[in-house]
Amino acid sequence: MNRITSLFQKKNEKVLNVYFTAGFPKLKDTVSVLEALQDGGVDIVEIGMPYSDPVADGETIQDSNQKALENGMSVSELFEQLKDIRANGITVPIVLMGYLNPVYQYGIEAFCEKCQEIGIDGLILPDLPVDEYFREYKSTFEKYGILNIFLITPQTSEERIRFIDEVSDGFIYMVSSASVTGAVSGINTGMEAYFNRVNAMDLKNPRLIGFGIKDKETFETASKYASGAIIGSQFVRILDNAKDIKSEVIAFVKSLK
C-alpha cells in the first residue's frame, strides 16, 4: 500500500506535511534535512524540485529554488541523492513537488518508474491540468503506484473539486487563499468559510491546508478545518538561517506539535 494512503488510514487529524527545497541551503543537505524532519516527527515530507520559474511560489521559496539551482541541483542529482533513503531507514511518506517542464524532459513514465524505484509516494505538479492528467497520465501514475496530488483554491468550482476528488487519491492540497506561498499569514474568516464549504462536500480524499501556516497556532487552527496542514516558506527560512540543521529542524517540528 502507498505510504500516504496507509498514513491517512491510521491518522486523520493534525497531519503535518513540511516542505523544503532539494539542494538547499547546500547541494548535499537534502538527505540530512529529510532525516531531521523524520526524527522530529513529521507525517509527510514534501521535497521541492528546484525550477527556474516556480509560479506558485513566493519570494522565499523562489530564492531557495534559485540557490539550489546555482548549487547544481537537478532532477537526476535529486534521484541520485535519494536512491538509498529507504534502505537507510527513511520510512516517512515522501512527495516530490515541482513543475512539469523538468518532468517532461526526464520523461513522464521514466520519472514515475524512478520514483517507484526510490520509494517516492506522490507528486505535486501545480501546472499539470487535471483534465490532461486524467486523459494522458493517470494510468502511468497508477502503474507505478505514484499518487498525484492536486491543488484547489477558494476560486475552484465545486464541479472541479469533485472531479479532482474523483480522479485522484492520497490527499487534496487545499490552498488557503488565491496567492503564492509565503504571501499570507494566518487563517481569516474568509478562509474559514471556504474550508467549511469544502468540508460540507463530503469528499473521499482528506485535505491538507497550505499557504499561511507558519507555527503551532496556525497549524492547529488549520487542522480544525482539515486533516492537517502544510508548512513551507517558514521552514525554508529556518533552513536558510540554521547553524545546526539537525537540531534546529527537530526543534522547529517539535514546536508545532
Rank of each mutant, 00 (worst) to 15 (best):
L100C: 13
N65D: 12
T91R: 14
T30G: 01
K83H: 14
T21A: 03
M201Y: 10
I187H: 01
A222K: 01
L37V: 05
V253F: 07
N188K: 11
S247N: 15
T189A: 13
S227I: 05
S76T: 14
K11S: 06
G182K: 01
F24V: 04
T30M: 09
G23R: 11
F171G: 00
S227G: 10
D240R: 15
N205S: 11
M73T: 02
D39C: 11
G98A: 04
E77W: 12
S177L: 10
I230M: 07
L208A: 02
S6P: 09
Y106H: 14
K67C: 08
T156M: 06
S233F: 07
N17K: 08
Y144M: 02
G41D: 05
A251C: 13
G182V: 03
S76L: 14
S76E: 15
M97L: 12
S168N: 11
I213D: 01
I108E: 03
R237I: 08
P50Y: 04
G72P: 06
P126W: 10
A242G: 06
E192P: 12
G107M: 07
S177R: 13
V130Y: 09
V92D: 03
A226F: 02
M73I: 07
D127H: 08
F171M: 07
A229T: 02
Y106R: 12
K10D: 11
F195T: 00
D53W: 09
S157K: 11
P93T: 07
S52A: 11
Y225S: 03
K14Y: 12
L27K: 12
V236N: 08
A226P: 05
V236P: 04
T218L: 02
G232Q: 07
I90D: 06
D215G: 05
S227R: 05
E142V: 04
S52V: 09
V175F: 01
D63N: 15
K257A: 14
L128M: 09
D169W: 12
L256E: 08
A226N: 05
E166K: 14
K257Q: 14
M49Y: 04
T153Y: 07
R207W: 11
K243R: 15
G145R: 06
L125V: 13
D63Y: 15
T5S: 13
Y144F: 09
E109G: 02
T189Y: 11
L34V: 09
K246W: 10
Y194C: 04
N196S: 15
F150K: 00
G170C: 02
R162C: 09
I230V: 15
F252E: 07
Q38W: 02
A178R: 09
K204E: 14
D43I: 03
P126E: 10
Y106F: 15
M49L: 15
F134Q: 13
Y225N: 05
K257I: 15
D29W: 12
I4T: 00
N205C: 13
K243N: 14
V167P: 00
Y144T: 00
K67P: 00
T140K: 02
R162M: 10
C115W: 03
N199P: 02
E192Y: 11
G41K: 07
Y99N: 08
V184C: 10
I118T: 04
E35H: 09
L203T: 09
G186D: 09
V130N: 04
S139F: 04
G210Q: 01
V167D: 02
M174R: 06
D63F: 15
L7N: 02
A36R: 01
G190D: 14
